[in-house]
Design a protein around this nucleic acid. Structure first.
Lengths: 158, 158
DNA sequence: ACCTAATCTCTCGATGATCGAGATTATCGA
DNA sequence: TCGATAATCTCGATCATCGAGAGATTAGGT
């Protein structure tokens, strides 16, 4: 492999990292705008994601999604409920469970903020042919695969 | 634009998000392995990045890099120094400043962990022609641009 | 050379996020 | 029906972060 090729690959890896930093900053910005912290935003996003899949999250599942213990989930839901971002409801199927429902206004704010980004990203992709997007797609799948292996166990098998 | 094209773009946006989640998890894993928190890892990475540029970070510049106030930087450096990940040195040019030097072992651990990822990413890129990588490069620059605008101010100009 | 303002780091006390342990209520299985 | 399991909550402790202010050092104007 040529020196240039090696440099290009390193450059691409750095670009991936920079993209993640900026994507994180988008969430950070949403947090600041609404007086939330990083965990709060991650929780709201998890709930929105679930809602888009037609599911409603319980407290326990939210804890799994954002990696918090049950005591912390209670505190998290407390503060989000206190400012009206969501409300608790008892699950009628299993009355031990607490299902979380986001308020319409918060759902709208989230859709505005993150949906706007998705919209602009999609618009920027108009500059690419379907074949090019297919290449990018494969690339992202491959890179995600490598990263995921490193995230789970240090020296990945293949 | 066709339905499929729209779906493909949305899929790519989701892939970018998933990639950032997994990249975050790589740092999280490093944190767990060394008994650190997210901020600590971000600090060590910032110091490593600076070192690679041939610079040494001062406490103040580290605070800018990880977005912490001076009191928090003191506490951060305290705990990293206590476990031997770095040491404070007075800057002889400006004796108000504290320059931070990472220990060799921590630098090596970081290089092992994150450098290993970079190596595997580069290896996975071998499946792509230079022309394909150029397309990916342009794509990532474009997407980063869009994301960065959303991270700074909500409705971006162009 | 001086003196004031600005800069850099640190200390202190307060606040808030997270957790482990244990309590409470509800469901499930024998 | 009863014991085991599960879901959530309460309580007290710990830790990260911050604002305000102190102490030390440098920069700039006179």
């Amino acid at each position: 492999m040529s020196e240039d090729a090696a440099r290009e690959r390193q450059e691409l890896a750095l670009l991936l990292r920079r993209l993640t930093v900026e994507l994180d900053a988008v969430g950070q910005r949403f947090a600041q705008m609404h007086g939330l912290n990083r965990t709060d935003v991650r929780a709201l996003v998890a709930i929105m994601d679930a809602a888009r899949r037609g599911e409603a999250l319980t407290a326990g599942r939210l804890g799994e999604a954002v990696d918090l213990r049950s005591a912390s989930v209670t505190a998290l839901v407390d503060r989000l409920e206190k400012v009206g971002h969501l409300r608790r409801t008892r699950d009628d199927e299993d009355r031990r469970r607490v299902v979380l429902e986001m308020s319409d206004s918060t759902m709208a704010a989230g859709a505005e903020h993150f949906g706007g980004l998705a919209r602009d990203l999609a618009a920027a992709m108009a500059d690419y042919t379907p074949e090019q997007l297919a290449v990018v797609h494969r690339f992202l799948l491959d890179m995600t695969d490598v990263v995921t292996r490193h995230a789970r166990t240090d020296p990945p098998p293949p």
